[in-house]
């Protein structure tokens, strides 16, 4: 029962080979096996969205997947965005609009919003709410996050034009 399994996962462009127990949650794998602790865990039942990552380009709850299921797949986490010295436009916008306070939910918001903005930077108010409805934030009241996403959309659309 529950024998350890070998998996190969590409995370932020780097290939990792690990031996893991099937029940290991993908969130725990990312945080504690790969030491990519920028992905946070807030509820472990798929509601808060703090653990959102990109799985084959789609935003998913990493607490609602087993790490074994990532075998052969591609993952992006917050660490794949900008660096402290060179923030991604979305991160820049979050700083400029004060879209984070404690910062615990922030990686989840970034990874939920990123694919939306990478798809289109022309967002209606409704699109915005939709993109964010799977992420809880207790600090900001969401208003500055909405501002930040609009700001990021501007930055990213002008960035893609140039």
């Amino acid at each position: 029962m529950s024998e350890a399994m070998d998996i190969t996962v590409t995370v932020n462009g780097e290939v990792f080979q690990k031996t893991i127990e099937p029940r290991l949650l993908l969130s725990d794998f990312i945080r504690h096996e790969l030491n990519l602790s920028g992905t946070h865990v807030g509820c472990e039942h798929g509601v808060c969205g703090a653990c959102t990552i990109l799985f084959d380009g789609m935003p998913v709850r990493s607490c609602l997947m087993f790490a074994v299921q990532a075998d052969g797949h591609e993952i992006r986490t917050v660490e794949d965005l900008g660096t402290m010295e060179n923030l991604h436009p979305l991160q820049e916008a979050f700083q400029e609009a004060h879209a984070l306070q404690c910062g615990f939910c922030t990686s989840g918001f970034l990874m939920s919003i990123l694919p939306v903005l990478e798809g289109t930077t022309d967002l209606s108010e409704e699109d915005l709410k939709r993109a964010m409805e799977g992420n809880l934030c207790r600090c900001t009241g969401y208003q500055h996050i909405r501002d930040a996403v609009q700001l990021a959309a501007e930055k990213m659309s002008s960035g893609s034009e140039s």
């Binding site: 920028g38 900008g82 010295e85 990686s107 970034l110």
Partner: peptide
């Protein structure tokens, strides 16, 4: 913010 935004 830069630390929080980059997961650091």
């Amino acid at each position: 913010d830069p630390r929080l935004l980059t997961g650091q």
